[in-house]
Design a binder for these strands. Structure first.
Lengths: 345, 345
DNA sequence: GTTAGCACTCTCGCCCTCCGAGTGCTAATC
DNA sequence: GATTAGCACTCGGAGGGCGAGAGTGCTAAC
């Protein structure tokens, strides 16, 4: 795998990203590497095919890069440092403008992302387990039911229904709320779960409430961030040439509607090395229906280092450099809005 | 427009609903109306075409019913009373089972609806303005920010962020919460808006809080029920033969992602006469992109007569009788769950 | 008013052909 | 030994022609 092969591979990937058509040796020679003849390129491409970097749809067609090729391409991109973002400032301005005067930051960020890229976008809030609790509140809903509202340091609000003892009225619930807040403020949900049993033993609280909290923490752990994923621009997948026939697109759309499967995508991402950008190409997503899709993810921070995820789902044939830059940009801006704008205590 | 024409029209509609293929006179004569010859049917169909009930894609093809034809067909259905629901009991059982052990009733109802029908489903909560308030709570979020939680008599919870005076601490907010609850419990949001000014004059409350409430009621009025629409099964539109090419499907998908436009659909529905079932065929939806779609809506009730909407979006070529029955059934069951199951105080 | 028969139309699927893009191989060149 | 020019070969896809079939409208008979 010499330098020349690498340059040819890069040319193939880039041309295919642009045109969506199999790339021939002549094209490469004319458009990208004039100093090398098409015959030489043919030989090299033959080698590259043998190495698994590309293949031919049929004998007399050009080559199409494989997932392995995209992988190498993206790694090259990452290694060589991404381009400095040129239109950084204007784009950030635009983002801040669009997001700030809309109520729901998450939804509008998703919207902006899919508008920017013309792909499918997803925005996930930080995992609840890692969020730091600011206050806890029990709000009576009906007899024996209360709404547990948890406000975190990033100003993110999560709530869940819990059962409580029949006998507890509004004032009693308020007292309990205060006690819980005293006890747990500043802790993460994860810690709360750990300390719950010990707290149950020591505190003079209604066992019903404790059971409620137990239930809550279970539920929080279970649903994790399932319901805080927002997806936008799903209709864009119909623009990809590879999904022009509805038959192909349906399974993917179906995955995009299913929050658990989306979580799965992000989960597999989280296991990768500690950078805040991640690219999953085709099979790497772990979802068979998406073998022709890539997922690009970036992290953003809320409050004291809690991390949420934003991402783009598009065809493997995707302008990675552009998408990566967009995600970095939006991720930064989002961190700013969520940490700076609605700063906690 | 005699009886025979009507029967022929019905046959055309039903056959087209089943097969999605233009219907010829011979087909009608053999499959539906043996006692009439194909030639007669041809003549009648020619008349029907002139009346605007059907048209031919090309000269040598059968007829395809127009929106006007579906309209008549549906009205006939409605007039003749819908079939008694046969599998009523089993289906209701199934629905209750699926919905009850899932947390989010709205989301799972939408899921069930699209699973049942294989169409796109939507579920909308009752308009907030008509909901009856059970309790109000202010939960501190950060300095000068609080979460206003409103619990309604159907156990539905809505919350919004409001600005409050810097000086208010948790206890002060709690006191205000109690006062607000005393004042407004049992009233609808609409009434609250009306009484707000008079309340401002009489009560000894922090002007900041009042402004917050003002802001809240504005916001509630503005966003109405925008963010309580849930859509499920959008990928199903790719199954309709009429949307097999991605080009056709994209605009529709795009509409389905846009909450305001969905609201628009339901709004136009609300203006129709006072039945709790409504069918909008093609152009009647008021959305150009959906001229080949129909929307079927049903209402359900929460608490003391507050009405939400569930609906199905499918191709105009849709088994209306079946869909209407399904919606009635699910609507009933949902009313039961929301009013009976989580009954308020 | 209804029906049988018939000529006519038009789409769709099929096959065939041809064109061109692209390859691999071989032989010549540096 | 690497590179390149040349050439024969392959194969998909566009385009054209053909026939079958479905359906119609019209006319004439009942």
């Amino acid at each position: 795998m010499n330098e020349r092969k690498r340059r040819i591979l890069q040319a193939v990937v880039e041309d295919y990203i642009m045109t969506a058509m199999p790339v021939g040796s002549r094209t490469i020679s004319r458009k990208y590497l004039q100093e090398i003849s098409s015959a030489t390129i043919r030989n090299e491409m033959s080698d590259l095919e043998e190495l698994g970097y590309m293949m031919q749809p049929h004998v007399s067609a050009g080559r199409v890069p494989s997932a392995k090729a995209y992988r190498l391409y993206v790694d090259m991109l990452m290694a060589s440092g991404l381009n400095p973002i040129k239109e950084d400032k204007a784009a950030r301005e635009y983002f801040l403008q669009r997001v700030s005067h809309l109520d729901d930051v998450v939804a509008s960020t998703a919207q902006v992302l899919s508008d920017f890229t013309h792909y499918v976008s997803l925005v996930m809030m930080p995992g609840q387990a890692d969020l730091c609790i600011a206050t806890l509140h029990l709000v009576p809903v009906s007899r024996a039911m209360a709404l547990l509202v948890i406000v975190t340091d990033g100003g993110i609000i999560r709530d869940t229904m819990v059962h409580v003892a029949d006998s507890l009225d509004t004032d009693a619930l308020y007292a309990i709320s205060r006690m819980l807040t005293d006890r747990f403020a500043g802790k993460t949900l994860k810690e709360v779960r750990r300390k719950l049993r010990e707290f149950a033993a020591s505190a003079p609280a209604d066992p019903q409430v404790l059971q409620g909290i137990e239930e809550l923490s279970d539920r929080m752990a279970r649903e994790n961030a399932t319901d805080t994923i927002t997806v936008s621009g799903t209709h864009n997948i119909l623009n990809f040439p590879e999904y022009h026939e509805a038959e192909k697109a349906r399974p993917v759309l179906s995955v995009l509607e299913n929050r658990e499967r989306l979580m799965q995508i992000i989960k597999t991402a989280a296991t990768r090395d500690g950078t805040d950008l991640a690219v999953h190409i085709g099979p790497e997503t772990g979802i068979p229906e998406m073998e022709n899709c890539s997922v690009v993810l970036a992290e953003y921070t809320v409050g004291q280092g809690n991390r949420g995820t934003i991402g783009i789902i598009g065809p493997t044939r995707m302008p990675y450099a552009r998408v990566l830059n967009t995600l970095r940009l939006v991720g930064d801006a989002l961190s700013l809005v969520l940490t700076g704008g609605e700063q906690a205590e």
